[in-house]
């Protein structure tokens, strides 16, 4: 018993994801190389990186939506790298997802109640119990209970994201993969949705893999942070360290690139950034000379 308690909830070990190339006999496209991460119970791992860095692919590989070419993903002590659809159905109780775009992640033809009841029905819950649970969920994410009979298009972006969060919460999972869940939202809506994520974690002890391109968001919500660059994890560690005093040149650039809302401090940061870029360029040249 003690082994499962101390073991991390999710462990990704030397994961490689490759997509077969469309061209005949061409080399497959390698999206992820040698990924090693762990997430403990009740912990949030922030995953930050630029577009095309593979951060979304990592989330999708854990969810079984991207092909695992090499390495191992274990969840709750079980190897789920190549879980079958049947295993996934069992797994979906513990492993859920919130996608970036609240406009396409909800089927526009289904009512909110049906969308939320879907994962419950898959697990064999009867209709009356499911309806009760759906009402609880709506309450939990701060939506009115009359939302049950409404269609997604009647809601704003922030409200839709709440519906998506409620769907992920429906089965009381242990881990939720959040793929840029606040990127499409307005600033004040983003703040409310982040509050909701934190509140849910406090109440339920759920773990998050929180994927974002925004270092500020990741710093705010994560216990630990991993930085991805070109399909690899270049740096990971406690959120406070990685997001304020990073080691890797890319993370340093990323930190100084995000503008601060004050003209004078931003001017300072801009100057720091230019100095950093200059230093990195010179180091790069020196390395080239030495090589």
């Amino acid at each position: 018993m003690s082994t499962t308690e101390s073991a991390p909830l999710l462990a990704v070990d030397q994961l490689v994801v490759e997509y077969p190339s469309k061209k005949f006999r061409a080399k497959p496209f390698r999206a992820l190389t040698d990924i090693n991460i762990t997430i403990g119970r009740g912990e949030t791992l922030g995953l930050v990186g630029e577009s095309g860095s593979g951060k979304t692919t990592l989330g999708r590989a854990i969810l079984g939506l991207a092909p695992v070419t090499g390495g191992k993903i274990s969840f709750d002590g079980k190897d789920i790298s190549h879980a079958s659809r049947k295993d996934r159905r069992v797994l979906s109780r513990d492993l859920q997802v919130v996608f970036q775009d609240p406009y396409t992640s909800l089927n526009p033809a289904l009512e909110i109640g049906d969308i939320l009841a879907e994962p419950l029905g898959v697990q064999g819950m009867d209709a009356a119990a499911a309806k009760k649970r759906v009402k609880e969920l709506l309450d939990q994410v701060g939506l009115p209970s009359d939302a049950i009979n409404r269609l997604p298009r009647e809601f704003s972006g922030g409200q839709r994201q709440r519906v998506a969060i409620a769907r992920a919460l429906a089965l009381a999972p242990k881990l939720i993969v959040c793929d840029e869940p606040v990127s499409a939202l307005d600033l004040s809506t983003q703040a409310r949705v982040l509050d909701l994520f934190l509140q849910i974690q406090k109440d339920t002890g759920v773990s998050y893999l929180f994927v974002s391109h925004d270092l500020d968001v990741v710093r705010h919500i994560s216990h630990r942070v991993a930085v991805m660059y070109h399909g690899e994890i270049v740096e990971q560690g406690p959120a406070g360290v990685v997001t304020t005093d990073p080691d890797h040149p890319y993370t340093q650039r990323l930190l100084l690139a995000s503008p601060v809302p004050d003209p004078d401090r931003q001017e300072q940061r801009r100057a720091d950034r230019h100095r950093l870029l200059e230093t990195q360029r010179m180091q790069h040249e020196q390395a080239g000379v030495l090589a």
């Binding site: 079984g64 492993l95 997802v97 992640s105 909800l106 898959v122 697990q123």
Partner: peptide, 19 residues
């Protein structure tokens, strides 16, 4: 994405197609 979400929920392909 809503099809992906249904896959994550463990819906069988048949139910995904039907629903």
């Amino acid at each position: 994405l809503y099809v992906d979400a249904a896959r994550v929920s463990g819906l069988s392909d048949l139910s995904i197609i039907a629903r």
